[in-house]
């Protein structure tokens, strides 16, 4: 009985120490990531709050931004979106879906010769405007396109 208790204490002691070490080791990268990942903007529940989180004013409409996305997406879990900008000095491209639980989808920062173009696939909960914002020289511009969704890609 005593022996059992002893070995029990010994094992729990060691595993406990490992868990603490792992937690300490894991904490670091998470902290660093939290600093770089814009939590406020990504967890914003409205377009206005997302802009606030990104630190930009509501963008002006621009015809120089082209959005290539389907008019009707049968599957909201996979909606291909392609954005290209003719705004001079485009440094960032941001994709937002107005009616998603969290409107901010992604932010792309371009440098060293990257063309003002990104292509990706996004999830949409329901029919909504897909808004693409471009930041150029500290100013923001946007364009939008409606995508009708027959089956939502969030929740499910």
């Amino acid at each position: 009985m005593n022996q059992l208790r002893r070995s029990f204490l010994k094992t729990t002691g060691t595993t406990g120490a490992i868990a603490v070490a792992v937690a300490a080791g894991l904490l670091k990268p998470t902290e660093v990531l939290a600093a770089s990942w814009n939590k406020n903007a990504f967890e914003a529940k409205s377009l206005a709050d997302a802009y606030k989180g990104l630190g930009v004013a509501a963008p002006a409409d621009s015809k120089d931004i082209a959005i290539k996305a389907p008019d009707i997406a049968e599957n909201g879990a996979v909606v291909p979106v392609e954005v290209s900008s003719k705004v001079a000095g485009t440094s960032s491209i941001v994709i937002l879906v107005e009616k998603n639980a969290n409107p901010l989808i992604a932010q792309f920062d371009l440098a060293n010769g990257a063309e003002p173009f990104v292509s990706t696939r996004i999830k949409m909960g329901q029919t909504s405007m897909v808004r693409c914002m471009v930041v150029a020289g500290g100013k923001s511009f946007s364009a939008s396109k409606e995508v009708k969704v027959t089956i939502g890609g969030c929740g499910g």
């Binding site: 392609e82 879906v97 992604a106 920062d109 060293n112 990706t120 696939r121 999830k123 949409m124 890609g153």
Partner: peptide
């Protein structure tokens, strides 16, 4: 990165599709 120089850095939310696809272009490569 292209030859070690950063060309694109992105921050994503959870609404990028499963098994993500990313396409971009770099001038002068």
């Amino acid at each position: 990165t292209l030859n070690g120089k950063p060309v694109l850095t992105a921050q994503w939310g959870a609404a990028i599709s499963k098994n993500p696809f990313l396409g971009f272009k770099v001038k002068g490569a």
